[in-house]
């Protein structure tokens, strides 16, 4: 059988008439095909590289962590979302040598109930620690339990020496606000940590004092102190300023 097949195949193969093939034309075609293939590979590589560069650029531009530096936050503020708004330039220090914090560049979104609860506890601890650090010997302080709403926290309390209590109302927020500090009795100073503190020792109400400060991280802290009877003095200006930079929103 295989001999028959071989014979049949040979008969069939004899039919084939090879066309004259110009080997030079074959070489030219082969070179042209090779050139085309290289051109296609080169253009595909360039296209891929261009697409990759464009994709990386778009990704980098869309990434907020790359485009703008993240603001300084504490552990309890990590869940707070920030948005950028146009703000006014920072006021220069009046009595200090350093420039104050950049004011008005950011506002914060309302705090969640969990953030507010954690913030109230932390602010109380920070303020009481500041009292321990700043108040002269012989002064005591009350509880200063903070309450917080979505935009700030406040507390009332008193510091007491052997003469009489000085009532304090404090308010903390993160909106970069600071007193305009009119009048000769008001002074502004930038503390070593960059906090701008405005201290007004003679406010409209007699026997009162106000401290307004803004920290570089945006914390705005206000202390309004009143006392009922004339007294020789309360705390020194430096002690009030030290209290003014005591807490972080």
């Amino acid at each position: 059988m295989t001999e028959d097949v071989t014979r049949g195949l040979s008969l069939l193969a004899d039919e084939a008439e090879p066309a004259p093939i110009d080997s030079h034309a074959v070489v030219a075609l082969a070179r042209a095909r090779t050139g085309r293939r290289r051109a296609v590979i080169a253009s595909a590589s360039v296209t891929l590289a261009t697409v990759a560069v464009l994709a990386l650029t778009v990704t980098a531009l869309r990434s907020p962590t790359v485009a703008t530096p993240a603001p300084t936050t504490t552990a309890t503020e990590t869940a707070t979302e920030t948005v950028t708004v146009t703000g006014s330039p920072a006021p220069d220090a009046v009595n200090g040598t350093q420039r104050g914090p950049a004011i008005g560049t950011e506002v914060r979104m309302p705090a969640t109930p969990e953030e507010r609860a954690a913030r109230a506890t932390r602010l109380q601890q920070e303020l009481r620690a500041a009292f321990d650090r700043v108040l002269p010997e012989g002064w005591e302080y009350s509880t200063f339990k903070f309450a917080c709403d979505p935009y700030g926290c406040w507390a009332r309390g008193s510091i007491v020496d052997d003469a009489e209590p000085v009532d304090l109302m404090v308010h903390v927020s993160g909106d970069y606000s600071v007193s305009q500090c009119y009048g000769d009795t008001c002074t502004k100073k930038v503390m070593p940590d960059g906090t701008l503190v405005a201290l007004d020792t003679a406010m409209a109400e007699p026997r009162s004092l106000g401290v307004d400060s803004v920290r570089p991280d945006g914390t705005s802290f206000s202390i309004y102190a009143t006392w009922k009877k004339d007294r020789d003095g309360t705390l020194t200006d430096e002690q009030w300023r030290a209290l003014g930079s005591a807490v972080t929103y």
Partner: peptide, 26 residues
């Protein structure tokens, strides 16, 4: 060409196959 003709059974296609074969071979 003979081999190509036996494979494909078409004279013209066999000639094309041989030319393609030579191009690839080159």
């Amino acid at each position: 060409t003979r081999l190509a003709y036996l494979l494909c059974g078409d004279q013209h296609l066999a000639n094309d196959l041989v030319q393609n074969c030579l191009i690839r071979l080159y």
